[in-house]
Amino acid sequence: MSTSADARPQNFDAYWQDTLAELGRLPAAPEVEEIPFRSTEFATAYGVRLTSIGPYRIFGYLSIPRGQGPFPVRYFLPRYGSVADLVPQGTSNGQRQRYVTFALCARGQRRSDQPYAASFPGQLTDCIDDPSSYIYRGIVADCCRGLEYLLTRPEVDPQRVAAIGADMALITAALCPRITHLVYTPVIFHRALERAAATQAYPLEELNDYLRQRPERRDQVLETLAYYDASHFAPMVGARTLLMAEAGSSPLGPSALEPLVQSIKSSTDVHESENSGYRDGAYSELWLSRELGVAEPSLPAHWR
């Protein structure tokens, strides 16, 4: 048994191989339905339903530009919370003119909440005392299934597939080598328990809540978290990467993340947050458009 998230579990590879093998035994069985409400003159929106492990049906918002493809992809991985937007709040809907976009609602999130509707707070510690039943094992499988489906679409350019998001983006890029680019913002799964001890803010406060009630399960929680810690996935990432670090001396700042960055297998750029959604967002947008070879970045009007 591992007792620290720093220690890579001995069966780490087997744990994830088993998860992906379980996923592979299940057909995705896609159902695709146009959503006229969210379609525009430049892009068609679809609702996609897929089977993931469990088996469990999950939902995603797919948008395909009108016109001749193939197109680069922005795959938006689920963040902590009940809502997954068609495109992230604060970004330009105009990005759907140039990119295939896919926003996955993982199990427990809205539209993927039958029969399991997650609580927020609550999801982070759902079955956390057992790696085999921890809810995030299924969520990771959901993310991998979404990518598999995306790559079956003829409109997708397989040479330009960007995963964008928080912890699930890193983990998916590590487990699915066909992701070519990664924009990763660490949030939860890096030294999570250690960082939780220094905050009362959710989602990490969930860990504190859980262990106040069940202090005897600390080792089990640590063991489970070790299967999800970014440090163990980073060496598996072959995608060109932009890591969005927090500012200054934060535990998720550039200095603290230096070992993680060094361990990423591929070429990695680090952006230190300027504590401005505008400046950080514009940096990320320009990086992504440059790396994917899209001439015009999809900047919101107020960012131009």
């Binding site: 006229p36 409400f37 969210r38 525009t40 937007d85 068609l86 495109v87 709040q89 604060g90 970004t91 330009s92 809907n93 105009g94 919101p300 009007a301 107020h302």
Partner: peptide, 17 residues
């Protein structure tokens, strides 16, 4: 009229339909 981002985009979506 000022932004094409969500959530306000929901109203633009509605009026398009």
């Amino acid at each position: 009229e000022l932004t094409d981002g969500y959530p306000y985009q929901e109203i633009a979506d509605y009026l398009r339909l």
